[in-house]
Amino acid sequence: MKIKPLQIIAHIILILGVLLMVVPIWISFASSSHDSVTILTEGMKFHIGDQLARNYNEVLNEKGGWSEEVTAAKMFINSFIMALGIATLKVVISAMSAYALVYYRFKLAVPIFWLIFITLLVPLEVRIFPSYKIVSDLGLTNSYTGLILPLVASATATFFFRQFYKTIPDELLESAKLDGANGWSFFIDFLVPLSKTMIAAMFIFMFVYGYSQYLWPLIMTTAEEYWTVVMGMKIIYTESYEGVALPRTAERFAYIILSMIPPVLVVVFLQKWFIKGLIQTEK
């Protein structure tokens, strides 16, 4: 096989892109395996040091916060629950509302769709006070429900599902009807399996969205046992500066590396479906 100059250039660009993505992560990982003093005196590291196990163990299990009770492990669990709840409910609600909008041709379907779509202009940060007021009146502060519920409606996902359902031929619905399918079974037996790749993609996006939420959990939670990873990142960065203690740089890197794992796992796990759906058109 002859290699063309254009291919070489393309590969150089691709390799540069890969390096741009991977090198910062590698530096963080390598630095997390050293002693904080080493990093403070010698700068960030490219090679693995000997403090790996100690740093990670400390980050995961050290009790922090004012109450000295919350650990990073607990925060990971919180974030995971929150992201999972948000992603699952967002996908379920969006798919179902899109189904209603496309297949039940009630009079106000179009205005209602646009109303949903307009909420894109009002992200949580804009409506954070009313949202807080409602959640607090419902007594949901410091609960997983309170963390998840205000974030479960998604105009974006509804829009994508709607566009997808519109491409499904009417005959399929008619044929299913004649085969005795009712509204619910058509959704479960047809739309869900047909859109499973779509569901996987939406789940990935929404999981990462939920996982990286910062402002909402910060406002919502006063009890430390509901802290999330992203909040912890802020805390670990600002703590114990005034005292004589050295900044714990290595542990911070370890924390960052750990915080990346859950979303990466979700992407890696669902990618198989995602790609399978892209190469296999089943419609």
Partner: peptide, 13 residues
């Protein structure tokens, strides 16, 4: 009643 459609409308999945 059972119907055969022009594009068959088989269940693709």
């Amino acid at each position: 009643v059972a119907m055969v459609f022009q594009n068959y409308a088989l269940y693709p999945h």
